[in-house]
């Protein structure tokens, strides 16, 4: 098999998994199932990142997003341990979601048209060795984007303090 074919096949596989996982995420009744579906989507997205030569993000997506953040999510869902009776009463979820998607379809096609008009069948050009690896991304992050990076760290700190403040509040 030629490498081009290989890439196409990988893209089809990952894209399908991502979209199906996404659909699954929004149609599960129980949040735990939905969260696990989202993990699948995230991992498929990581695969797409790899296809796009984003090595560093590929790692981050799996380790931080699919790993840490989703683990926290699932932990909280299990902590609350909601019974079926405590769930909001939602009937015919799939049908509702499909109707909503149908309503959103025109907007999607608008976007889709714009994308096609703008880029058509433009192909990716080959990239230099080491594109998207940790070194160039790190250089950019600590030079050009140094100030936003620091602000993001402060944002995380604020979030941390906020969470502690919220958790300490007693009803």
């Amino acid at each position: 098999m030629k490498p081009i074919m290989e890439t196409t096949i990988y893209f089809i596989i990952f894209a399908s998994i991502a979209v199906l996982g996404g659909f699954s995420t929004i149609t599960r009744r129980h949040p735990l199932s939905a969260a696990l579906s989202l993990v699948v989507t995230l991992i498929a997205l990581a695969g797409l990142y790899a296809l796009l030569a984003a090595d560093f993000l590929f790692v981050i997506q799996i380790l931080v997003y699919a790993g840490a953040i989703m683990a926290l999510m699932i932990f909280v869902i299990m902590l609350l341990n909601l019974k079926q009776s405590e769930m909001p009463p939602e009937e015919q979820i799939e049908k509702r979601v499909l109707v909503t998607l149908a309503l959103l379809a025109p907007l999607f096609f608008l976007v889709q048209t714009a994308i096609v008009r703008q880029f058509g069948d433009a192909a990716f050009q080959p990239v230099a060795e080491g594109f998207g690896s940790i070194k160039p991304v790190g250089m950019l992050l600590y030079q050009t984007y140094f100030l936003p990076f620091e602000i993001i760290s402060i944002l995380l700190l604020v979030a941390l303090v906020g969470v502690v403040a919220l958790a300490k509040r007693r009803a």
């Binding site: 081009i4 890439t7 196409t8 893209f11 894209a15 991502a18 979209v19 996404g22 659909f23 995420t25 929004i26 949040p31 989507t41 997205l45 797409l48 296809l51 796009l52 769930m87 909001p88 009463p89 939602e90 979820i93 509702r96 979601v97 109707v99 909503t100 998607l101 959103l104 907007l107 999607f108 976007v111 889709q112 994308i115 096609v116 880029f119 058509g120 069948d121 433009a122 192909a123 990716f124």
Partner: peptide
Amino acid sequence: MPGITHYLTVSALLFFLGLAGFISRKN
């Protein structure tokens, strides 16, 4: 060989799925 159009389409699909979930779910 998938071009940027395909990736962006997947991106838009995921975004609209999320949007549909956001406005149709109560949980």
